[in-house]
Design a binder for these strands. Structure first.
Lengths: 204, 204
DNA sequence: AATATTTATGAGTTTTTGCTCACTTTTATT
DNA sequence: AATAAAAGTGAGCAAAAACTCATAAATATT
């Protein structure tokens, strides 16, 4: 488990089936993750779950970390897509409709892969000066979304601070609504209440 | 890494120095955690970081999981202590003072061990019918805290749903304020804004 | 069709890691 | 002081995991 001295480069897939193999491997990790068996995340088992040989895994990933890093990249792209779609559809809607769409998008993301965030946050080292991480990416997207509605907000508010709070509320409750919802609280109720909380905060 | 067939019992420490050894081992895990090097969480390295032999570790912990489980227990007790203290001091205060105290307590907990929650959530399997986990514990404590102020809340609100939302806001922002605060947002500002958000939600 | 390149395989090597146990040292008891 | 019990040690074992490499199959290029 200790970091190997260096991670040799691997060739990148050029043929279609090679790209498919890479996707299959990443999908297998998600499948294991959904089963919740974190200890089954070994390279050999990932290969087995993907239905490819261990050699194929190392054709495209220099080491185990790289598999998680690739998954991280794919997840970021997916979040961008989902959030972007919500923004595109509700760019000119009311603030309430926008927030509702964002909350729903967040719940969708977390429903698809409930444990992914925890895995990535423990397995992916934060890039020092490199690309933006998950929460920064979310912050940027939400900042853009809220900027269109600044006139509806009380004046004299720090936009970054407001977005920081709003992002955490939406993300945490989107996550919690899927994973930690107490008995007697429906998903729909949690969703609506989250929207209420965000709107109450923004208008306060 | 796969689960061993059975985990034999170990003797529990009776002398003072033995209890100290156990604490030293748990502290070492926290120290490694604070360094952020999740891959250094091997039994041998934990022993080395604690300055005890690997044999001593296995005097008191039947397997590696048990170390994390003990840490989990210790963390739950600490959270109970901190939250309980906040409640005791502000049992008859205003709602605003109470929320402020809870937010501060949450930030304190997360400041001490920023990565602990992530580790535990990935390494500790959820107890089937056993003791309550972290978020349930928090929910119970916050429910108690809020119950004293039901008269200040709008009527016709589901207490569990309200506590669910409030707990996630406080926990997530307490955590985020320490770990994911963007540049230009001070800790004090994040704390105050969290209080504002919770109060706005509760009064909405 | 012949050749080159990319992709896939998986048995086997090497490293890591969880854990044991025979033994020593320290503390408690008589 | 003698004896017993508890605590501590660390070399080393067995299992597991990361990763390699010689080889074969599939696809692309000539």
């Amino acid at each position: 488990m200790k970091a190997r001295p260096s991670a040799p480069e691997r060739r990148s897939p050029t043929q279609q089936r090679a790209r498919q193999t890479v996707e299959t491997i990443l999908d297998a990790v998600l499948r294991i993750l959904r089963r919740g068996d974190l200890n089954a995340l070994t390279t050999n088992h990932i290969a087995e779950a993907a239905g490819v040989s261990i050699g194929s895994v190392y054709q495209y990933f220099p080491d185990k970390q790289a598999i998680f890093a690739a998954l991280h990249q794919r997840h970021l792209a997916e979040v961008d897509r989902v959030i972007g779609s919500a923004l595109a559809q509700h760019g000119s809607s009311s603030l309430q409709a926008l927030i509702a769409a964002l909350v729903e998008a967040m719940i969708d993301v977390h429903t698809a892969d409930p444990n992914l965030y925890e895995l990535l946050s423990t397995q992916i080292p934060p890039r020092p000066g490199g690309s933006r991480d998950f929460s920064q990416r979310l912050h940027g997207a939400f900042r853009l979304a809220l900027a269109a509605h600044v006139r509806e907000l009380p004046p004299e508010r720090d936009l970054d601070l407001t977005v920081f709070v709003m992002t955490h509320i939406v993300d945490s409750l989107g996550h919690g609504a899927v994973l930690r919802r107490p008995a007697g609280v429906s998903l729909a109720a949690a969703r609506e209440e989250t929207v209420r909380a965000v709107l109450a905060y923004l208008r306060s």
